[in-house]
Simulated assay, not measured.
Amino acid sequence: MSAPPLDWGRLLAAQLEYYWDTHLWPRLNGLTDDEYFWEPVPGCWSVRAGADGRFRPDGVTTRKSPAPVTTIAWRMMHIAVGCFVIRTATFFPGPSDPADADMFDPRHVPGDLPHTAKAGAAFLHDSYRQWHAHIAALDDEAMRTPLGPKGAYFSADPMAALIVHVNRETMHHGGEIGVLRDLYRARG
């Protein structure tokens, strides 16, 4: 008697869902603006208003080594935009998303990011829900299909590999958000 076939799509979507529901989303409860923008050390990357008044993340085009410490705002927007928004717009585009854009196209990045912790959490939640709904609906064939030109230099990789990467990034940066919240609370 053989085991039933494994539903990789359901398993990957459930992994992200469990992490979100059990670990990340509950850790954002009660997040204040002061905590959201708190810079634990000098030189932190954050989300800041530019001369035009629009909020954007620091260091998007910079590759510093080692990378600077980042604020909770920066980490939340990295997950929301870098993991969810650009991947959703690329692989599950809506009517206003550019059809010719790959997953590194800057046109996917919102021109203005949330200005408060409450708005940042809502934006992160909405971007997660959109990405999760799309990946949860993929069948086995879609999971195995290479990303193609929209995947840029990951074009030969299957959609499942991208989902594994997004899950890993979400968990990694979500854990950092948890540590920053612990440090903020314990700072005395």
Rank of each mutant, 00 (worst) to 15 (best):
W25Y: 14
P26F: 06
P26T: 05
P26H: 05
P26W: 06
R27C: 12
N29S: 15
G30R: 04
L31G: 02
D33N: 02
D34H: 09
D34W: 07
Y36M: 14
Y36F: 15
W38I: 04
W38A: 02
E39K: 08
P42V: 04
P42S: 03
G43E: 00
G43N: 00
G43V: 00
G43W: 00
G43R: 00
S46D: 11
S46V: 10
S46H: 10
V47G: 03
A49E: 10
A49V: 09
A49R: 11
G50I: 09
D52S: 08
D52A: 08
D52I: 11
D52K: 06
G53F: 05
F55W: 11
F55S: 03
R56L: 10
P57K: 09
P57Q: 11
D58L: 05
D58M: 06
G59N: 05
G59M: 06
G59S: 07
G59W: 02
V60I: 13
T62H: 14
K64V: 15
K64T: 14
P66Y: 04
P66W: 03
A67L: 12
P68S: 11
V69P: 10
T71V: 04
T71Y: 03
I72N: 01
A73F: 05
A73P: 07
A73E: 04
W74Q: 10
R75C: 13
M77K: 08
M77H: 14
M77N: 13
M77S: 09
H78G: 06
I79S: 05
I79Q: 06
A80T: 04
A80V: 04
V81Q: 00
G82C: 06
G82P: 05
F84R: 01
V85G: 02
I86W: 14
I86Q: 12
R87H: 14
T88I: 09
A89Q: 13
T90L: 10
T90H: 07
F91A: 05
F91I: 09
F91G: 04
F91V: 12
P93L: 07
G94C: 07
G94I: 08
P95H: 08
S96K: 14
D97C: 00
A99R: 12
